[in-house]
């Protein structure tokens, strides 16, 4: 049995699963992740298509990243081409959010470095973690 963690990437926000769950196989962890996606996106499919669920192993290595749009039941009945287009757009939106989040973090780190150079105090957190000077 191995422990897997399910982190949610929601726009610029990353929500960490601190506890995780144990599963007999990677496939079981994947199935659990898909079920969690379906519970989270139910009745808010349109707003959550660009969210992602990151499944990490015990060493916190990313095993897979699941895009919500790929599991949207509302898209099951649309033509495959349309579905693919929605997935590409949702994926691009998710990538843009990741980039903006990385940029925000870099900006905070630059501010922290500048503050340290000027011997000024600087205290900031990003997603619950302290930004180190």
């Amino acid at each position: 049995m191995k422990r897997y963690f399910f982190h949610l990437k929601k726009g610029h926000e990353t929500i960490i699963d601190p506890r995780g769950e144990t599963f007999a196989s990677k496939q079981d962890a994947y199935d659990h992740g898909v079920a969690v996606i379906q519970e989270l996106m139910r009745y808010r499919e349109l707003a959550s298509r660009s969210w992602q669920l990151e499944i990490c192993d015990e060493d916190r290595c990313v095993q897979c990243r699941l895009l919500f749009a790929s599991y949207d039941p509302a898209l099951e009945k649309v033509p495959p081409q349309v579905r693919r287009t929605v997935e590409i757009v949702s994926h691009s939106r998710a990538s843009l959010s990741d980039t903006i989040a990385a940029l925000n973090r870099s900006l905070l780190e630059v501010k922290a470095t500048l503050a340290r150079a000027n011997n000024m105090p600087f205290l900031a957190t990003y997603e619950g973690q302290r930004v180190e000077q």
């Binding site: 399910f6 699963d17 506890r19 769950e21 969690v36 519970e39």
Partner: peptide, 8 residues
């Protein structure tokens, strides 16, 4: 619902 959903 699943415990992971509640946690998140």
């Amino acid at each position: 619902i699943r415990r992971t959903t509640v946690t998140l």
